[in-house]
Structure formats: structure tokens, C-alpha cells
Design a protein around this nucleic acid. Structure first.
Lengths: 236, 236
DNA sequence: AAAAAATGTTGACAACGACAACATCGTGCC
DNA sequence: GGCACGATGTTGTCGTTGTCAACATTTTTT
């Protein structure tokens, strides 16, 4: 990528002896987010501490408060970033298969899992218990981007319904099932909860591909009513 | 429930003025676990602190260390308890439908969700990032009970495969898909991640029922016997 | 150039997890 | 019966953390 370099942080992580370390960092905000991800990647746990981050960024302990109201706000910012990235993954699936809804669907599922594998630390923060996912704070930017991400899924489901690929019904409800399988698989992966299966990289890929197909199967329209979006057949 | 009462903690939560508060609590271990669940239920967050628990149990701050090696050990104990409870929920599904595999499967799915609704705090601890779900500690009792819980699911899947209800293939892999959908739905529920849908209790029940059916659909054997090797779907 | 806003720093406080040393209770052993 | 010992609970202390207040320095605006 020959793109123009970033303004380049004056301090990356540690003080440089040659220069007297400028009083202002330059781009602390980004550096903190980056350091936060790095810490989550390594330590994987809840150890993420403001002071630790400040240390990592070569800055003093309360400096982060000039950029984030609280620890939780910082984590929320990382989560927000994560949702945007996940949306990019979803967009990629659509871009690759603009004309084939089934391929789009399957690729979307794969991309969700791929995101989890590529950026587990983001996923953990997005859906972990770190952010007080309480109540009426629907004006928080995190909510907006989260809803937008879910919205992309609903769009896909609506398209699939129109094509007769996915069963009819409230697209939001269908989307919840789709999301559930992918989210569950991704979270189990990310939290090492499947390690007891001793899956090598090949076996993991097979599991992921299977999960993608099963996701479609979970909401697939019954073949009888392929192009006629109707209510489910009278089974009971 | 006319069952015999427990030995009755001498101290429940607060000191009683009448008695000089006996030096020994009597059943601190249970009291701590109970208080931990209570805290998780109320505060829902990571606030769970040893000192706080000790306070709640009317005991002094380092007393818990006589019963749990560390905070993480205490949380692991709660998680273990949760897995046992989840197994009981699963057993109930089997008990209700010993002869009908499809009904057993559906009820098992419902029971998983019911467990999440009934004991969200347990679920959060079982699958949250609190316990360092690391590596070779496969001898930890938590691993054993976790594996046993998954084992129950695999049993169900194997039975369903034999009956031609669920597609053939490695039952563990099939079980992962089943688990993924249920786990994903349960976690989204428990972490209030679906609140933006504004689901009333009725709508939630509908969603849950749909999730149960979609779970079966995700791994159902195709009626045309595409991948079902020997068994014919005798439509039961 | 002066004022104001942004950004970074040190000091302080309360809370926490964990360890050590000590106190008290109960139980088994002679 | 007495007593030693282990189980259990307590206080003291240390290092760490999140957060606020007060102060310092830099950048931007007027």
C-alpha cells in the first residue's frame, strides 16, 4: 500500500532518550485504542486497565481521561470500531456476490466467522459484559452502529426472502435465528470454548463451513414453496 | 416443596444483635456462592468482588479465602454449579419425551433457552470471560462438568441421527451447530443484546420457540435422503 | 499578544485481590 | 478428661486500579 503515511505518532510506545519526549503525544486517542486491542489480544482477559494502557502509550496515568470519559467509554469506543469492521466484512460478502443471493448469504455467514477469527479481541469487547448494556441509552453511538450492523443482516434476509431462498415471515425474527447461530459459533470459538475438541486449522475450517451451511438450513424456505412466499405448511 | 429444610445458616446476611455473632459462620461456602449469584443477578456486571461478598455474608474480608483459593476459583465454582443445573434442565427434556426423539430434541432446545431465562447470571458466568479459559488445565473440575454437559447434547444428536431425524455425519460436529444456535440466542438474550427489538414477554416466547425449531431445521436430515446413508425417514 | 481551550502531569482517595500473622473454634487422640 | 492440631475467621499490610482535583504546558482562537 503506497498510501500516504499517517501523521506518525511522535511517541509510539516508549520514551526515546534522544528527544525530551514532547509534552503532547500527538494522537493519544488512536494510540490508546490500538494499545487496548493489543492488550486484549495478548492477555485475552479483563486485565485491560487504563493505567496499563497509559503506560503502554508512554503517557501518564490520567492522560486517557482527556480522550475518554471512563474506562467503559474507552471500551465502548473499541467496540464501536469493531462493529464498523464487521460491517466492512459484511459489505465484502455482498460485493463478491451481487447477483447470487444464496452465494451472498453463505459468504456473509463465512465472513462473520472470518471476522471472529481475524479479530477475536474486537468480538469479545463488542459482546462481552464490559459495556453496561443497560437500558434507555439508545442515543449512545454504540447503539446506532450496532443496530446498523444488524440492519445489514436484515437486508440480506429480506433479499433472500424475496428470492424464495429463505422462509417468509418477519425478517427481523428470521435474522435473529441467523444471527444466533453465527454469533454462538463465533463466541464459542473466540472464547476458546471449543478447544476441548482439539481442532486443528483444517478441522476448524470444516466446522466453520458447516456452520455457514447450517445457518442457511436453519431458515431455508421449504422446497415445496420455493418461489411462493407463504406461511409455513400446516404441520400442526 | 415440603422438602426438609437446609441446616439453616446461623448468619444469613447481617449480624443479629441478640447473639454475639458466632465466630464461625457455619456454611460460609454455600452462603458465598448464593451471595455471588445474588450480586450477579442485581448488578449484572463485573462488580462481583470478594470483599463485597464477604460483607454480604456478614463475614470479614479474607474469610472467603478459607473456602476458595481466589476470586476466579469462586467464580469457577459458580459456573460449575451452573453446568450441573443446565444438565438437570436437559435431563428434564429427556424425561418428558423418552420415546419421541423429535419432541425430545425440541424440548431440549426449549430447555436450554429456559435455563437462560431462569438463570441468566449462571449462564453469564459459565460462558463469560471471567474464568481464564486457557489451556492444559483439562483436569480442572469445571472442564469435566462442561464436557459432560456437551456430552449430553451429543447423546441427543446421536439418537436423533439413528432415528433419521438429523443428518448423518460426525455427531460432534452436528452438535456444535446445534449448540451454536442455542448458545448464541441464549447469550444475546442474557446480555440484553436483543433489547433493541423491544420484545414483550409474548414476543420473546415466540422468538424462543422459533429458535428451537430453527435449531432442528439447521441439522435436519434432508427428506430426499441426500446425505442420510442408511436410515429412511419413516416420518415417525 | 492575551485569553481560552486542549492536552498532559502529579497528588490523593477509596476500593480491590492477595498474602502473612494471629485468634478462635471444634475435633480426634492419648 | 485434657490437649494438640487442623479448620475457620480476623486484622494488618502491600501493590494495584479507577477516578477526581489541582496544576502545568502546549496549541488555538480572538
Amino acid at each position: 500500500m503506497p498510501a500516504p503515511e499517517k501523521p506518525a505518532a511522535r511517541r509510539t510506545t516508549r520514551k526515546v532518550k534522544g528527544k525530551p519526549a514532547p509534552y503532547h503525544h500527538g494522537n493519544l486517542r488512536e494510540a490508546l485504542l490500538e494499545a487496548g486491542l493489543e492488550l486484549l489480544r495478548r492477555d485475552s482477559a479483563e486485565s485491560l486497565g487504563l493505567r496499563e494502557l497509559a503506560r503502554q502509550a508512554g503517557v501518564s496515568r490520567t492522560a486517557p481521561y482527556r480522550h475518554f470519559e471512563s474506562k467503559e467509554a474507552l471500551i465502548a469506543a473499541i467496540a464501536e470500531q469493531g462493529f464498523l469492521r464487521l460491517q466492512a466484512y459484511q459489505d465484502e460478502a455482498r460485493r463478491r456476490h451481487p447477483d447470487d443471493v444464496e452465494a451472498w448469504f453463505l459468504e456473509g455467514a463465512r465472513q462473520y466467522i472470518r471476522f471472529a477469527v481475524d479479530h477475536p479481541e474486537h468480538l469479545k469487547v463488542m459482546f462481552g459484559p464490559y459495556i453496561s448494556h443497560t437500558p434507555d441509552q439508545t442515543d449512545h453511538p454504540l447503539y446506532a452502529v450496532g443496530n446498523a450492523t444488524f440492519g445489514k443482516l436484515v437486508e440480506l434476509v429480506v433479499s433472500a426472502q424475496k428470492a424464495g431462498l429463505v422462509r417468509a415471515g418477519d425478517p427481523v425474527e428470521v435474522s435473529v435465528s441467523v444471527w444466533s447461530l453465527l454469533h454462538g459459533f463465533a463466541m464459542l470459538l473466540v472464547q476458546k470454548q471449543l478447544d476441548f475438541l482439539h481442532l486443528g486449522p483444517g478441522r476448524l475450517a470444516a466446522l466453520a463451513e458447516q456452520a455457514a451451511h447450517d445457518t442457511l438450513a436453519a431458515v431455508r424456505a421449504s422446497p415445496a414453496a420455493s418461489s411462493a412466499p407463504r406461511r409455513r405448511p400446516p404441520s400442526r
